[in-house]
Amino acid sequence: MAGANWKNIGPLANIPVQGARRLCLKHMGRPVAVFRTSANEIFALVDECPHKKGPLSEGIVAGRTVTCPLHSWVIGLEDGMAVAPDEGCAQSISVRLIGGDIYIHLPEAASAA
């Protein structure tokens, strides 16, 4: 069972394979990118590239990485870390797949509201 801070954000089918969608969370202030890999794994990162805040949800997804559309930094989906020689980290957000639906773990501030 998902706990109190886990919210259902809809079915897996909403996200294109090898792609991403953007999720706007009013109380978090910053949008979240929800990724789906070709192996149907789900990951989520704050939708801001560590370089200049490019929208990662618009990047090309390959394996467990996404390439930022603005200046081509490569970001790991699991931990949000930029691949060397670039340095930086996009905040990673916990997600789970339960019965075909995606659940996202909201940070305290967001879920308390």
Binding site: K7, I9, G10, N14, P16, R21, R22, L23, C24, L25, K26, H27, M28, P31, V34, L106, A110, S111, A113
Partner: peptide, 13 residues
């Protein structure tokens, strides 16, 4: 069409 719409906003979140 999904390209041009963000995911539906979460109620209450």
């Amino acid at each position: 069409a999904y390209e041009f719409a963000p995911l539906p906003e979460l109620a209450g979140a």
